[in-house]
Design a protein around this nucleic acid. Structure first.
Length: 111
DNA sequence: ATGTTGACGCATG
DNA sequence: CCATGCGCCAACA
């Protein structure tokens, strides 16, 4: 089991309308937040023409701990794509591009 | 083996 | 709120 597979498997469990953070994901599977970001970045690189609208892994549901979008400074991902995807799922952003983590944060079922 | 690179996060000033 | 600095660690060259 590759490290990035552990990340993907967990991210796939985030339900629509909920979000998580790199730190939270990392904490759940014992990885540094940077590694989580690295794994998702790799996902984008391996995309190879697949449509952004139908991601295999709902990577858009992972944002940073400040509640803002981290992908906007990247060149390999269209500007505001992540924000639009989340808005499609009912996530609201304020004028500064922040979202309410307390409201939308995903709480993994303690089972 | 060694150095570099981050979709990060937290502490400081 | 903005700017640095640093720890973190898998993958890659």
């Amino acid at each position: 089991m590759k490290t990035f597979d552990r990340v993907y498997n967990l991210v796939k469990k985030i339900p629509k309308g909920k979000i998580s953070t790199y730190g939270q994901i990392g904490q759940m599977i014992g990885l540094n937040p940077r590694v989580v970001g690295w794994a998702l970045n790799r996902l984008a690189k391996d995309r190879k023409g697949l449509p952004w609208q139908a991601p295999t892994v709902p990577w858009q549901r992972v944002i940073n701990s400040k509640g803002t979008i981290s992908t906007n400074k990247l060149s390999n991902i269209p500007l505001d794509l992540q924000k639009r995807l989340l808005e499609n799922e009912g996530i609201k952003f304020d004028k500064a591009g922040r979202t309410d983590l307390k409201k939308y944060i995903w709480k993994k079922k303690t089972k």
